[in-house]
Design a protein around this nucleic acid. Structure first.
Ligand SMILES: [Mn+2]
Ligand SMILES: [Mn+2]
Ligand SMILES: [Mn+2]
Ligand SMILES: [Mn+2]
Lengths: 138, 138
DNA sequence: TGGCAAATGTAGCAATGGCTACGGATAGTG
DNA sequence: CACTATCCGTAGCCATTGCTACATTTGCCA
């Protein structure tokens, strides 16, 4: 019985852990996209991208720099470290699969874009594979 | 072009908003389940359920009491208000559909339980309907 | 019924991510 | 070359959700 209760708590622990990585994942993905689009990624680009203040971005960039995901120097554009680049590639691929999956499932574009932005961070390898199989069958 | 940038930020705003409701949703669902199972829901039951300390639960219960989702009195079990009860029913139904959907998609039980716990909060009406249609077709 | 163990509350700390206000840096323009 | 607008950093506020340590209440049983 106690095992049952403990087992039940696992999904919540896992969800908290995933939420803790979510900001890093969204930021490296955004940096990669902005560099592709505009050639560089400024703090203000990220602020507009996420619809938050430049202060919020600035603090988070500093943290991700300490985690060695981003390069940053005062008043210079933000860049991806090799570690950040590799995470971004993985995250972008997963995000694209989740988005395609929702569209294929019949969700309209606007809602697929919205929901996939949150869902992507909660899709483990097992669910991701199931989504890939679904897409392949179409 | 600015419209495009602004439109891109909508999913992130929506995701932040959903995360802001997540605790309330998980708590009312847990209270309903624990009352069904044990006849009452104590602070420590919730702490074990979520794998957090009783202090964390106690503070959150106080907040949800102020939001009129829970009844709480010192050293007494926690109960659902009508508002909390109605939210719990809605949330439990959505969670069950997401879980069934993942299982039907071919995700193993353990991962379906884990992933659905996070995904549920990012499933809007449009995606929920798509999942229902998918389940009906099986 | 007295006392102990379990449950709950309170105080206070940390990390994260929102914000406004203000000040300094940078880069383009006249 | 100086001005000015834009960009960015810093200070400091708040809310949320984790935590430990300690105090208090409750309820059961010896
Ligand atoms: Mn993303
Ligand atoms: Mn995202
Ligand atoms: Mn949940
Ligand atoms: Mn989430």
């Amino acid at each position: 019985m106690k095992d049952k209760i403990k087992a039940r708590s696992v999904p919540f622990s896992q969800t908290r852990s995933r939420h803790a990585s979510e900001t890093a994942e969204d930021y490296v993905e955004a940096v990669m996209e902005l560099i592709e689009e505009k050639g560089e990624c400024r703090v203000l680009d990220l602020a507009r991208y996420f619809n938050v203040s430049h202060v919020t971005v600035s603090r988070i960039v500093k943290r991700l720099y300490e985690e060695e995901l981003l390069y940053t120097q005062p008043y210079k554009p933000v860049e991806l470290t090799p570690k950040g680049n590799s995470l971004a590639k993985k995250v972008k691929e997963r995000h694209a699969i989740v988005l395609d999956f929702l569209l294929e499932l019949g969700v309209d574009k606007a809602n697929a874009y919205i929901d996939s932005e949150g869902i992507e961070h909660h899709v483990g390898p097992s669910t991701l594979n199931a989504m890939k199989r679904f897409l392949k069958k179409r």
